[in-house]
Amino acid sequence: MNNDTTGLLQIACPHCHAINRVPGARLGQAPACGRCHRPLFTATPLALNSAAFEAHASRSQIPLLVDFWAGWCGPCRQMAPEFTKAAAQLEPRMRLGKVDTEAEPAIASRFGIRSIPTMVLIQGGHEIARQSGAMPASSIVQWASAQLRG
Rank of each mutant, 00 (worst) to 15 (best):
P136L: 12
N20G: 13
T84I: 03
T84F: 06
T118M: 10
R93P: 09
D67G: 05
S115C: 11
A70H: 01
G124H: 06
A106Y: 02
P92L: 11
E127S: 15
Q142G: 10
E91C: 13
A144S: 14
F83H: 06
G97P: 03
T84W: 04
S145I: 05
C73I: 01
L40D: 04
L27T: 11
G125F: 08
F83V: 07
C16D: 15
G7A: 15
T118W: 00
P23V: 01
R59C: 11
N3T: 05
A129Q: 09
R95S: 15
A137L: 09
A80F: 09
R95C: 07
Q142A: 15
Q142R: 11
D100N: 10
Q78S: 13
I107R: 01
A55D: 00
E54D: 09
V66D: 11
H17A: 06
P81E: 05
R93C: 14
N20M: 10
P136K: 08
G125V: 02
S145K: 00
M79S: 05
C33T: 05
K98Y: 05
H37A: 12
E127D: 11
L148Y: 03
S58P: 06
A12Q: 14
L46N: 08
A86Y: 00
A146C: 06
Q61P: 11
F68Y: 08
V99K: 12
G34D: 15
T118C: 02
W72C: 08
C73V: 03
G133W: 02
